[in-house]
């Protein structure tokens, strides 16, 4: 009897103790290129696991839009504690789902124009830019106006705002520069557009194959070619009107709010161990304190004279109308 009681008690103690041995886990949903071997994912995972003594599990989908869809699909039952990789054009919609929880006080994020949002925290940013091939184009346009009004022989490949984030970026860029005159600008630009691809990959592929001397991409694209391929051939054009900003953010889900590791990760994300990995793995600018200086290639990049950005709410309210406007001009 006594031995039975003893073994029962010890079994109960053991059962209670086992979960304490299992490490706590943090699940982060993100996009594919973040977790790729060459992406920031592996470094971030290692650094944060060392700091928290926990397990980090990344679940990756194709891109930021797919990320939001996945969370919408899973709804309240999502396994994600943190969703990392939405951009400011998606945050209004993401908030509207009610699946995200306000973060606590997270350290200051450094993005152009400052940041104040109770739900999402930036982890990097970049500017959209017209990237050109120096071997094909000797005098790149110096302004959006020059691009719009320039010779129709100098072609550019752009992306469709209905299916692609950079495509939407260019649409917003033109809108922020031209305002109500945007349709007229597009009507002129249309002659220079070689084709409108469904996504960034297709456009950049056509560009590097030499089909067009210009493509819509990021100011940081030349950094990749300089650092990884050691070539100066591809450069970004600097526009007088300024460049349109893209800020990538992360947020805690409502179910993640119950996991204390989520808050910790958000603080870690804006710190140097995370931020140091960003420039040369995600090819974007860090949005927080770094310990290492930026690779000198980043100093050679175009520095926007002015930062253009619509607020998340403005984009959410007008996106459909603006895309329809674009469509009616471009499909004539």
């Amino acid at each position: 009897m006594r031995t039975l009681l003893y073994s029962l008690v010890s079994a109960m103690v053991l059962a209670a103790a086992v979960p304490a041995f299992a490490k706590d886990k943090l699940t982060v949903y993100t996009y594919e290129s973040f977790t790729a071997d060459w992406g920031p994912g592996p470094v971030v995972k290692k650094e944060f696991e060392a700091e928290c003594g926990c397990d980090v599990e990344f679940v990756s989908v194709a891109d930021g839009v797919a990320l939001l869809n996945r969370v919408k699909l899973e709804g309240g039952s999502t396994k994600a504690d943190i969703v990392l990789g939405l951009d400011t054009n998606l945050t209004a919609e993401a908030k509207a789902t009610g699946l995200f929880s306000p973060h606590g006080a997270v350290a200051d994020a450094k993005v152009p124009g400052g940041w104040s949002d109770d739900t999402f925290v930036p982890f990097d940013y970049g500017y959209f830019a017209v990237v050109y091939d120096t071997e094909k184009l000797k005098t790149p346009p110096k302004s959006l106006k020059e691009l719009v009004e320039g010779s129709a022989d100098e072609k550019i490949v752009i992306q469709d705002p209905r299916t692609s984030t950079p495509g939407l970026g260019l649409l917003l860029w033109v809108k922020s520069v031209y305002g109500d005159k945007a349709p007229e600008a597009w009507a002129k630009l249309k002659a220079k557009v070689l084709t409108v691809t469904p996504g960034w990959s297709e456009a950049y592929g056509l560009f590097t194959k030499g089909e067009a001397p210009m493509v819509l991409s990021y100011t940081t694209s030349p950094a990749y070619h300089m650092v990884a391929e050691n070539t100066q051939r591809y450069q970004a054009a600097s526009f007088e009107e300024g460049e349109y900003l893209q800020i990538e953010v992360a947020g805690i889900t409502t179910s993640g709010a119950k996991n204390p590791l989520a808050e910790k990760f958000m603080a870690f994300m804006t710190g140097p161990k995370f931020q140091d990995a960003i420039p040369e793995t995600n090819w974007m600018f860090p949005a927080g304190k770094t310990d290492k200086p930026l690779n000198p290639a980043f100093d050679k990049l175009v520095k926007p004279t002015k930062t253009l950005l619509f607020s998340a709410d403005e984009v959410a309210a007008n996106r459909k109308a603006w895309v329809d406007e674009w469509l009616s001009v471009m499909s004539k």
Binding site: T163, M330, K332
Partner: peptide
Amino acid sequence: SFTIVLTLGGGPAATTLEVGIYQALRFDF
């Protein structure tokens, strides 16, 4: 057809229903 039509079509004048379906599910959910 979707990627072919958009990539080689030269602009949104060349758009198929499939693009609309894709947009509806992906971007607009």
